[in-house]
């Protein structure tokens, strides 16, 4: 088999995943696109392992490790997304702007002053957003 087939397929899958990461708004769809990118990398690893006939099977061992790390990543990622959803009421990555730098120091989203977001305090305004 020509090596260009799996390599080009992996490149195209990676770029489709890149588009999804950049263009999607829902955080879970972003995680799906990350999975597509990881699978493109896995396909590359397997193809080059079969091409090089590696005695150590490094490509396939690394593919297995990548799959396991991806499973751990999706678990932690979904836990974080659910936590964000329960605190904020939405999982839109466009609306998570608490760490954004603003030139005037104001908060355009909810109108409260930025000093209000001390980490120890519960934040009832976001809770109210979630309930609304």
């Amino acid at each position: 088999m020509h090596l260009a087939y799996p390599a080009v397929l992996a490149v195209l899958l990676f770029c489709v995943g890149l588009y999804g990461v950049l263009a999607r708004r829902n955080a879970i769809l972003v995680l799906m696109s990350v999975e597509l990118m990881l699978n493109a990398v896995n396909l590359n690893l397997v193809a080059f392992d079969v091409w090089l006939r590696d005695k150590l099977h490094a490509g396939q061992a690394l593919t297995l490790f990548t799959i396991a790390v991806a499973a751990a990543e999706i678990g932690i990622g979904l836990a974080i997304v659910l936590l964000v959803y329960r605190n904020r009421g939405s999982s839109d990555v466009d609306r998570l702007r608490d760490l954004a730098e603003r030139p005037d120091g104001s908060d355009p989203d909810d109108g409260s002053d930025p000093n209000d977001d001390t980490p120890g305090r519960p934040r009832p305004d976001h809770r109210a957003e979630a309930a609304a």
């Binding site: 080009v8 490149v11 195209l12 990676f14 770029c15 489709v16 890149l18 588009y19 990461v21 950049l22 263009a23 999607r24 708004r25 829902n26 769809l29 839109d92 990555v93 466009d94």
Partner: peptide, 21 residues
């Protein structure tokens, strides 16, 4: 479902796909 920067994302994806292919 798509955010506002989908056209910029499309440009980035197509450019990287072309270069990598």
């Amino acid at each position: 479902a798509d955010s506002g920067n989908r056209w910029a994302a499309l440009i980035v994806a197509v450019a990287s796909a072309a270069a990598l292919v």
